[in-house]
Design a protein around this nucleic acid. Structure first.
Lengths: 137, 137
DNA sequence: TGTTCAATTGCGTCATTATGCAAGTGTAAG
DNA sequence: CTTACACTTGCATAATGACGCAATTGAACA
């Protein structure tokens, strides 16, 4: 360790335990909410999302159902679940329902999460932080 | 639609079907791999990841196990799964194993995915793209 | 060599979830 | 009003996954 680093870390409590760290509330706790990941962890749902992304427009349930081999009702449920998770939005016209990707929101969510992961309790010298003075969290 | 937009979209095949779109290979197909999401969709695993993030250093399995109420063996399995998914890395010294977050890689993965979601088959006028000329995919 | 400790792995159980079929809901058209 | 269509929902089944306990591995130490 360099003299500079020694000076920077002087006076800190060292080696905060994971137990202490997890008791601390941080933005990452909200952003790592499993709800979106739960929606994206199923291969069928992911393929439906990719289909809608690549199609680049709003599509009806019937159209999307042609993209994969599962039952129509399963597609309907998956799309509803993706909407619930905030990845899609729907619009009903007559008896048809169209889904499209909430592109901007999804992008923002991912970027915000990336920022939080990058910055959470980050220490340029890779040293443990105090339990109370973590400025980035 | 403005005259300019009419000119820009002239000669395009319109309204590509989701079936056609999903047949097209795009970067988003690789980036939306469910493996990472599968690792992040469980509340216990997410809390372990958040714990390691907030702790800001490498932690042993025993230390992390103190953060949550599940069995030690469960924590061991969860950490191994997070490592397999690319979110953590481990280092063995003697009989203890330390895990820490692969912060840079995780951040990059999320940002790359965000970029792909944002740009995939994006059309400023929200019109469908050709099936063969999607420059951003 | 035998003991202790950290961690992993095997296995049974319980809960969750994905799926398909069938029935139901709501809207448009004849 | 009746029919046809797009979609949703109820329900049973099968697959997946989380969990705890116990046994095992592997390393340090007396």
């Amino acid at each position: 360790m360099t003299q500079l680093n020694k000076r920077l870390t002087a006076g800190r409590k060292r080696a905060v335990s994971p137990k202490q760290a997890s008791a601390r509330r941080a933005p990452i706790d909200q952003l790592l909410d499993p709800a979106l990941f739960k929606a994206l962890c199923d291969p069928t749902r992911v393929s439906l999302l990719a289909c809608l992304l690549k199609c680049g427009r709003a599509c009806t349930v019937s159209e999307v159902a042609e993209c994969c081999s599962v039952d129509f009702s399963v597609v309907s449920r998956h799309l509803a679940m993706l909407e619930q998770a905030g990845a899609l939005e729907s619009a009903k016209t007559g008896r048809t329902v169209s889904y499209k990707v909430r592109r901007a929101d999804l992008t923002k969510t991912l970027r915000t999460l990336a920022d939080a992961v990058e910055g959470c309790c980050m220490n340029p010298n890779d040293e443990p932080r105090d339990s109370g003075t973590c400025s980035s969290c």
